[in-house]
Each structure stands twice: as C-alpha cells, then as structure tokens.
Write a protein that binds this DNA or RNA. Structure first.
Lengths: 182, 182
DNA sequence: CTGAACATGTAAAAGGTTACATGATTTT
DNA sequence: AAAATCATGTAACCTTTTACATGTTCAG
C-alpha cells in the first residue's frame, strides 16, 4: 500500500524522537554518513508523508517561517513495520577504489595519487563520523531508553574510517616497494 | 565534452585489460563489491560507448551470438583522463545501520534482529570480496605490470568486512548487557 | 529432453542530485 | 550594511533498478 522509500522512512525515524523542521532534519541527515538526504528530495518527501497522514505540522508557523513536523500514530506504525522488515544489502559506491583497480596496470603515479586522495577522503569521513553523535540532541529520557546504540553507531563509523586509513598506508608502502624496481 | 558517467568509465576500465563481451563485463562487475552495474544499464552503455567511438566490436559475432568489445585509442585516453581526475567521495547506503539507529529507542528486540541481519550481510560480503580476485583473469604480462594492487583491493574488502563483523559482535554484547536490566 | 547457464536487449518507473530561486533573521 | 545562516521550495536532468522479453548452447 504505502510503499515508501528508505529515505521517507529515514525521515520518519528522525521525527520519531521529537518534532523537527525540514531544515533540522536536513542537518541531522548531513551528520549521518550512512544515509544522505538531498535538498531536492527532503521537502517533496515531507509533503507526501503529510499527504499520507504519517506526519503533521502545527499549522501555526514557527518564528522564521519554518514548519515543524511531528510523527502521527500511523507514522509510528509505518516506522515500526520498516524497522522489522528485511534491509537492502549495504551498497557502496567507491569511485576511488575502482579507479585504483584500473590505474595500477596503466599508470603507477596515478595509483599513488589515488591513494593519497583516498586518505584525505577518509580523514574527512572519520571527522564527520566523530561529530555524528545524535544523542546530543536528545532529551534525557530518550537517552536513557536508547541503551548506547547511537554511540555504537558512531564507533562503527570510526572503526570503518580507521580500517580504511590503515589500509591506505599499507597500500602506499606496497606500491612504493614495487615502484623502486621499475 | 564526452562527460561519461562513472559506470561508463568502469566499463572502459574492464575493457582496458582485454576485450570482453557484455556478459563477461557483467560477471566481472558482479564480483566487484564497490561498483555494481545493473543489467538494464550495461547494454545501453555499451551502445553509447560504441557511438562515441571509445569501444568497438569485431563485427563478426562470436559463438553464442555474443559480441566482443574492445577499447579504442580514444577510449584509453578517456579512461586515463578519468583515472587522473578527482573522485566522488565514497557513498554508503546502509539501510540496516540507519534502522538500528532508530530501533534502539523503540524496540529492543528489533535492534538485536538487525544486528544478526547485519552479521549475515557482512559474512556474505566477506565471501564475495574473497572471491573477487580480478587478477585471476589476467594474462601473465598484465599481472607482472600491475604490482599487487588487485590483491590489495581484495584485502581492503576483507578488512572492511572483518571490521564490520567484529563490530556486530561488540554491539550485540553491549545490547545484551543493557537488555538484562530492563 | 529438460534445466542451467549463456547472452542480449527494452521500457517504464523510481529514486536521487544539481542548480536555481526566494526571502527572513542574526551576526559582524 | 554586508555576510552568514536559517528556511523552504521547484524543475530539469541523470542514473539506476526492475521487470519483461527473447533466444542459444551445453550438461545431465
């Protein structure tokens, strides 16, 4: 029936803890390295969630002409159903790594360049993950009932970044060794 | 002006080492966990690469009505240019992890279920990465000039999977501890 | 002879990004 | 007074996925 996209469900998830404006959802999402929500998608999705009666606004517009959205009971049911359904496998789009695979055969310097680029990318990723503590915006009650999952998720991001950075260093050494005897 | 998508460039990359049919590219891509190419995209992309004179086929159709494609000099230039240009940041779509973030507050059992699902996903991912040794299809000369990059890329996939699996176990213990005193 | 794997494609829809467009409020 | 940030939205485009459609060859 409803058949919402994962992005729509993610929006529902952000509203489950407390009401937020589109702008606030956007900011929360930008701190989440595992599911981005683009500008041009967020506001139309909010409309269609409202049309489906899964969220609603206090008709009264808050200070800066912003609209604060709140999840409905039906929205909570929808969210629960999503949380209990099977997830799509993790999908990674890693242009840098694909290039590296093809570069080695063709251009030794390009391979080194790519590994340095990769290091920069993952340093940025690590810093974003470190800053993504959603718990900071939660109420005391929410934090208490949440066990420590948000911290665990942050740690996952950090472990992922550290693994990637360590690998970059290993790969750079390996390539340099191979490069000395050309 | 060509302005090809990363997917088109990836196809070029697969053809750089040796000629292949669409089906063979499809298989190679399915073993690459870092850049998937879907069925409905591959064949149209091959057409447009051929129209742009970046690849060409031996008009003569091989055995099973398959078409073998080969990269042209212009295609090699295009590939080189791509390898040397900046890469899009790594993008991860991790539905399971996003759910987990929202599930903890709401449904303790759902969180455990998600972590077990995640374990299964990454066991599968690890096995796929272990099997993705593109070097196996290379000629001796290609392997010699490639340093050990494909092996490094495979190791990256394995390290990534192992990090994720270890984290699942840590998260499950943490959640179980929190769960005993509810 | 039947099923699995080989092999290539098309059409429609969904999903997502980018760029554009506008205006209010707060800080410097 | 300017710049930064807050705040919402639209339109066009691109990419990708899904489902469908078709036919061949090889192994059991």
């Amino acid at each position: 029936m409803t058949s919402l996209s994962p992005t729509a469900h993610t929006i529902l998830g952000y509203l489950a803890s407390h009401p937020r404006s589109g702008y606030e959802i956007k900011q929360a999402a930008s701190r989440n390295p595992f599911w981005g929500i683009s500008d041009g998608q967020l506001y139309p999705q909010l409309r269609s969630l409202a049309d489906a009666l899964l969220i609603e606004s206090d008709g009264a517009d808050a200070p800066r002409g912003k609209t604060v959205w709140r999840i409905t009971a039906a929205g909570r049911d929808e969210l629960l159903g999503w949380l209990r359904s099977d997830s799509a496998p993790v999908a990674v789009r890693d242009e840098n790594l694909v290039k590296l695979l093809f570069a080695a055969r063709v251009d030794h310097d390009a391979a080194k360049r790519l590994l340095h680029e990769r290091r920069r990318q993952f340093e940025f990723f690590r810093d974003a993950a470190a800053a993504s503590t959603p718990g900071a915006t939660w109420t005391a009650h929410e934090r208490a009932s949440a066990a420590s999952v948000p911290e665990l998720v942050r740690d996952y991001g950090l472990a992922y970044a550290e693994t990637a950075l360590a690998w970059c260093d290993r790969a750079l050494s390996a390539i340099d060794e191979a490069g000395t005897d050309r």
